[in-house]
């Protein structure tokens, strides 16, 4: 999964300058490991919601690749009929229930989805992806409070990449603030993930997901991670110097994707990697071909779908 996500997004990078993907894209390159590990333990009937940076989350939930690429191309065959663009992905076949662009917007919605699972007495969970900036929103605390109160099987996953666009955590949160401690005292079980050793990571994630599923209780996970590209768009913007060179290097060395690859090579899985990458490549080229070939929505689609 990790390599699929990385390869897809690198292909977006390659082709973006052609000017056919005419919408903002927020790439997850550098952060893929989070959703990838989770993908091992998510079931089809589990719900997931996400943010503006959702390609990885959508793919990790087995969302249709072709429909995602077509959506970014604004085509009628896109997952949202071209109406939502990269920031509004959905694939109800796999219960990826929507990603939205306003920071904090999807957190209560994912909580409500989780509540519905509880009411239906299902053994499923609702996964809610968010960025560090969303932990500054009222909707975050209000949702967590509610899910503790109602014992909702919601898994809140914060990908902390230290930045909100170009704004460092430093200008948004006090340096001593510890979200894990503060959420603990609200009464939600919390986890912080800083170790990306593949085996440890997989074990830990299994434990966390199981905990939420079996006990029907919310959990919060903070992942320290890093985005390698600009906040929005296909370029690397390290020349703007808003992040320290050493910090960038440190995180590139920690790159979950590269480390996973190294780990597998050590286990004599080089051939396996090559095979996976080859198959991914084929799938990706097909998806782009599908998107390019697909038609734009019709004029009549414009007015269609405002009400059911």
């Amino acid at each position: 999964m990790c390599s699929l996500i990385r390869q897809v997004e690198l292909e977006i990078v390659n082709r973006y300058k052609e000017g056919k993907m005419r919408c903002p894209v927020h790439l997850s390159i550098g952060q893929e490991i989070v959703a990838s590990v989770l993908s091992i333990f998510i079931k089809k009937d589990d719900f997931a919601v996400s943010t503006h940076r959702s390609h990885a989350h959508y793919l990790a939930k087995q969302g249709s690749l072709r429909k995602m690429i077509a959506e970014i191309y604004g085509k009628r065959t896109g997952c949202s009929m071209g109406k939502g663009g990269s920031m509004h992905l959905i694939d109800k076949n796999v219960n990826f229930m929507g990603s939205t662009s306003i920071v904090g917007n999807s957190i209560p919605i994912g909580t409500g989805l989780g509540f519905s699972l509880k009411l239906k007495k299902k053994k499923n969970i609702s996964i809610i992806y968010l960025g560090d900036a969303a932990t500054e929103q009222g909707s975050f605390y209000e949702s967590i409070n509610f899910s503790i109160l109602k014992k909702i099987p919601a898994v809140y996953i914060c990908e902390n990449n230290f930045f909100s666009v170009y704004s460092d955590l430093k200008v948004r949160q006090h340096s001593k603030r510890n979200i894990i401690n503060s959420l603990n005292s609200l009464g939600i079980k919390t986890f912080k993930i800083t170790d990306y050793h593949p085996v440890k990571l997989v074990n830990k994630m299994q434990y966390i997901v199981n905990y939420a599923r079996v006990n029907s209780k919310p959990v919060f996970i903070e992942f320290l991670t890093y985005r390698f590209y600009e906040h929005c768009g296909p370029n690397i913007d390290d020349n703007l110097n808003y992040r320290k060179k050493e910090e960038i290097k440190k995180w590139k060395d920690k790159d979950g994707y590269e480390n996973l690859k190294k780990f597998l090579i050590k286990k004599n899985q080089k051939l396996f990697i090559e095979k996976v990458e080859y198959l991914n490549r084929k799938k990706i080229l097909n998806a782009f071909k599908f998107a390019e070939k697909s038609k734009f929505p019709n004029k009549s689609d414009l007015i269609d779908g405002i009400y059911k």
Binding site: G74, K83, F296, I306
Partner: peptide, 16 residues
């Protein structure tokens, strides 16, 4: 503009 949310698609904004 019409009473319709702005669609993202390049193919639709031209009618919008």
């Amino acid at each position: 503009v019409p009473n319709i949310p702005e669609p993202a698609s390049f193919g639709l904004t031209k009618y919008y």
